[in-house]
Nucleic acid binder design. Sequence first.
DNA 1: CTGTTACTGAAAATCTTTTTCAATTGCGAG
DNA 2: CTCGCAATTGAAAAAGATTTTCAGTAACAG
Lengths: 145, 145
Amino acid sequence: MATSFEILVQQFRVQGHKLTQPRRAILRTLLATPKPLSPAEIQERGQKLYGDLGLVTVYRTLELMETMGVLRAVHLADGCHGYALATPGHTHHVVCECCHGVVEIVGCDLGHFLDRVAEATGYTITGHWLEIAGICPACQSRQAD
Amino acid sequence: MATSFEILVQQFRVQGHKLTQPRRAILRTLLATPKPLSPAEIQERGQKLYGDLGLVTVYRTLELMETMGVLRAVHLADGCHGYALATPGHTHHVVCECCHGVVEIVGCDLGHFLDRVAEATGYTITGHWLEIAGICPACQSRQAD
DNA sequence: CTGTTACTGAAAATCTTTTTCAATTGCGAG
DNA sequence: CTCGCAATTGAAAAAGATTTTCAGTAACAG
């Protein structure tokens, strides 16, 4: 279930936020890519949709969307601060080390594992975050040459 | 199995790096804390052991240790860029949302899960990274008041 | 001990992110 | 449909974080 523009727009409305041109451009940019983008990349791509898009606005919108729960920060091995839309429901990312493409894994089997962790540590588990690194099929065959 | 100063020193030697005063101070600092520290915090604490410790050196040493495989970056929910010693073997962190204390989970059950991911996505899985957020027993009882 | 080379700290350069502020724009009330 | 207010915007500046440069220093092999 991919997030659509309409659903995002809906979320903005419901949560009482205005739907401005810059924000639309950011939404469309995020929707158009399968991999996490940095704020700077979002600005760059977003400017093709709305020429004046400022980096400051990108930061602010990303922050807003994160609080809204429709965006998720992806921490890549090399740096941090990539952002990708949150698929409703619980997901994890597999990031290709080579092309940085991302696949989301829907459905998460970690419940059992986490129960064990809770038991072992005494912690109340409130959330978790898994990033998997790998090499995507396309890059694999490219390397096979 | 906690990492000891001697083991770290050993690693530096084996991998052909010099063991300078500043580096010793950084090692001791990392060994002395149970939670991930930012570069600035490491400098601050390290200066109690070696007064001249420069922030630049902290950055360089952290980078070096990460390549050596004895240090691991911990990406916290609030920011990024915390560093903690890597326990030999495969571990994951449970970070307390409240006091930011960290427990490492030794032994990792994710193999099965990852096999399934590999099958589903076609990716060759090369690594993974799990951070778990929770509330530690101490903070739980503090909140219970 | 001594020479070589890896390391170091300070300063400067770069980047990234946040704040400030006046101007603009979305959108609901009329 | 128009108006007006509050949310939002972009630019510039400030604040922070990280990296680079460089001349001096210290570790350690011989």
